[in-house]
Each structure stands twice: as structure tokens, then as C-alpha cells.
Design a protein around this nucleic acid. Structure first.
Lengths: 232, 232
DNA sequence: GAATATCTTTGACTTAAGTCAACAAGACTG
DNA sequence: CAGTCTTGTTGACTTAAGTCAAAGATATTC
């Protein structure tokens, strides 16, 4: 790896929220140990139970982290995009990955080995606090997911997700699903057939207009109350 | 608060896994700011959305952390016992509690205010790593819960929970439910009627023998395969 | 320890969502 | 650009689990 590559990698790391406020001196410690990994769409990154001697940052592309049932149904836990990390749990507890990870697109990842990273965390309170914030944020998301799976029906979960995307994308009443409908079903804890039926139902009932992966919210009020109440 | 009380509190804190390896000097910093709170069975500790200016450790008793749907159904996320902490998420991300917390028994809690605690974390890498381990452990549990809710049926979730209790209690083939059946239903993401029916069904099918809150595992093999496969 | 409240169980019924199957529509590959 | 593979939609059917209701069993509290 050339010094040039090291330098751009360190610059990139310093710009991520994880390393926000971490001194350059310490970032340089990483350049020798961080490994850049390329992987193709659909490539397996790790599986449940695999020993985890480090974790990943997404440099380019997107990765899905998911659970798999014995009969092959999947539940997506999280879709990770550029600048975000995954697999930290194995670094700080249990030493093995609790889920599967697969690239959704051709991606470039940065792998950070456990021991060096733990040393860096110990020497760097800002990094420790950033990590605590990141894990806390993820706990919050998981809490929402448990709430949705247990206490809301599929239309309610879908409504909440559409409003989340709309808010994130900030483009008026429009939004893009960002995932295939099959993958979206797996993120919402259902199957493609059910998702398809409910999308049509919401369109017929005037909540939304559908054009492939593009959705227009046509009755925000009712969509919000569906998301909040959780039932149709 | 007397110096004696401070001293026993500091000793107790030092014995928790959270403060494992933290120097006495820093523990004494806590004694001035940690507040002991008593609360009666069923007392509300915090609700979803409440501002969280600190978090709690359970000194005595038990606390349930749960989500509530608009029509009153609850999903227990976690039952917290002596030595365990809850509410940390509000300290490190979002500043408000993502769930409700209620005492299951008359309890004594230790409240640690955010700002002082964050300062302590910054000065104390061991504490930071303990916290990262605790949050990672909880993420692992939540991952399991999402997996169970989405990919397993109620009999599978129940079987897994019985095996978990049996393992934890380490008393041969016996186990105690530790919660009322209504609360257990809420932990497993179902309702008392359904839980009751499935317990009877498992007893009739020879998996277990039931005597109130005490269960004997009578066919471990089939219980394990039910827990793993997730379907009856 | 009587009185009240809460928890547990069972039965009959309803319903959300999964399964299976067929087909249509896109999207990638050679 | 033809052909294969993956993705999306709709219909008919099944089923796990929720709802409602009633009765019995434990607990709590005054």
C-alpha cells in the first residue's frame, strides 16, 4: 500500500462521524492496520457465529446486516451506507458476529482489527464517546424495530418507514424506496406478497401514489395516523 | 447522606461489572453525585420521550423496560436485576428515554447524572470499555429478540426462553419462570391467552411438566429442536 | 381472614398475514 | 438483442395468533 493511499485513507477516516474529534496523531496509528477490502454485490462478508476479530466501515457501496431462519426467510436488521460501521458488537462483546452481512452493491470496506482498535479507544476518550453514541443510536433503532414488529401491523410499519424515508430524503412529498421491494419486505419483517398487497391497498385508499420505486405521499395526515396507531 | 452510607455505596458500585477495573479514586468522585432512589412495585421510573439526564443502576429489586402500543399492549424489552443498568441510551444518544421503565418489585436504584458520568468515562478507559461491552451485549440480546419476533413462532420463542432460564438457573431439568405468566407473555411478544394455550400444548405433547411457575423439562431434545427450528 | 383485585385457563370466533401457484415485468449476461 | 434469471403482482387457500367472554385460581390489602 503506497503512502498516498494511506494518506487518503486517513483523511477519509478522519471525516467519518466515528472518528470525529480524534487527533490526527492517533489516526495515523490506524493507517498501518486498517485494511481496505473490496467486495462484489451479493458477496458474503460474515455469517452468524463467525469469529469477529475486528469490525468494518463502509467506504463505498451498501451492506445489509440480517438474520436468517432455518427455512431461509431473512430479517434485515440494518442497511449500512458510506461512513457507517458494522460488526462492532463482536469487538466489544462475545467475539463472534451475531448476524450475517452481505454486500448489496459492489462495495469497498475498511476493516479495523480488534486489538489495535481497542488500544486506540483506550487512549482516546473522544473515540470512546463517539462509539458509545453510535451503539446507543443503534439500540434506539432496534428498540423501534422491536416495537414495530411486536405492536404494529405491516401497514403501520410500512407507513412509518415511508415517512422516515420522506423525512430523510427531504424532497417534498416524494420519496424513493432505496431497496428492491423484496428487500424492503425483509426489512419490515414480512414477505414480498404481503408488502405488494399493502402497497396497492394504500394506493387504492389514496394514501400514496406508486411508480416503481418512487412514491408520492398523497394524504400525509392519514399516513401519519396509520404509522402512529399501527393499525389500518 | 452520611459518610457511612457513601462508603457502602461506593463499595457496592465498585463491585458491579460496570465499574470493574475502575480506580477507587474515581469511584469516590461518584459518591457525591450518585443518588439512591427507592420505588414501590408498579411505580413508574420513566416514560418514553422523558428527558434523560442520567441513567440507573439497580441496587435491589427488579425493573422492566418496555414499549407500549396506543391500545395498551406492552412489549417488555428487558428485565433488569441487581447490578445491572438501564437508561444509558439517553445519556449517549438522543437525550430522551426510548422506552418506559416500571419497578416490578419494591426496589432501590442508583441514579447517575449524565454530565458527571460522561466526565468519568472520559477520564477512565476501563469504564468506557465496560460500557461498550454492556451496550454491545444488549445489542446482541435485541438482535435475538428481533430474530425471535420476526422468524420464530410463539412456541419456538417460548422453548428458547425456557432453555435460557434452565441454563441460567443451573438446577438440573428444573426451572422457574421468574415472572408472572402475563409478564412472560409480554416479554415473548404475545398475550396471556396464547401463552397459556401453548404451555398446555407443550405439556400435553410431553416436552415439559408445569406446576405453577415451576417447570420441569421432560424432553430436552425436542425442546431444543423446537427452539432452533422456531416452529412446532 | 374477608374482600377485592389480579392472574390464569378454556372455549368459540375473527382476522392478519403466510403459503402455494401462476403469470407478468424488469434487469442483467452472453 | 435474445434468453435467462430475478423481481413484482394477483388470486385462492390455510393457519397462527389475536379478540371476546366467562369462570376459576391466586394474590394483596385493609
Amino acid at each position: 500500500m503506497s503512502a498516498n493511499m494511506d494518506r487518503s485513507l486517513v483523511e477519509w477516516l478522519g471525516a467519518t462521524s466515528l472518528f470525529d474529534g480524534v487527533e490526527d496523531m492517533h489516526l495515523w496509528d490506524l493507517s498501518g492496520i486498517a485494511m481496505v477490502v473490496s467486495c462484489k454485490r451479493r458477496a458474503n462478508i460474515f455469517s452468524t457465529g463467525d469469529p469477529g476479530n475486528g469490525f468494518y466501515l463502509v467506504k463505498e457501496g451498501r451492506v445489509k446486516v440480517f438474520m436468517l431462519s432455518p427455512d431461509g426467510k431473512e430479517q434485515i436488521l440494518h442497511v449500512i451506507g458510506p461512513g457507517e460501521s458494522f460488526g462492532e458488537v463482536a469487538v466489544f462483546a462475545g467475539q463472534s458476529f451475531p448476524a450475517h452481512a452481505v454486500a448489496l452493491e459492489n462495495s469497498r470496506l475498511v476493516f479495523l482489527p480488534r486489538d489495535d482498535f481497542v488500544a486506540l479507544v483506550s487512549a482516546n476518550p473522544a473515540l470512546a464517546l463517539n462509539l458509545l453514541a453510535a451503539l446507543s443510536q443503534r439500540l434506539r433503532q432496534f428498540t423501534n424495530m422491536i416495537d414495530a414488529l411486536s405492536l404494529k401491523e405491516v401497514p403501520g410499519r410500512l407507513a412509518a418507514h415511508l415517512l422516515y424515508l420522506n423525512d430523510k430524503q427531504a424532497s417534498g412529498d416524494n420519496l424513493s424506496l432505496e431497496l428492491s421491494k423484496t428487500q424492503l419486505a425483509s426489512l419490515l419483517g414480512t414477505i414480498p406478497e404481503t408488502l405488494s398487497r399493502i402497497l396497492s391497498k394504500l394506493q387504492r385508499a389514496g394514501f400514496i401514489a406508486i411508480d416503481g420505486s418512487d412514491i408520492v405521499i398523497t394524504d400525509r395526515q392519514r399516513l401519519v395516523s396509520l404509522a402512529e396507531f399501527g393499525k389500518f
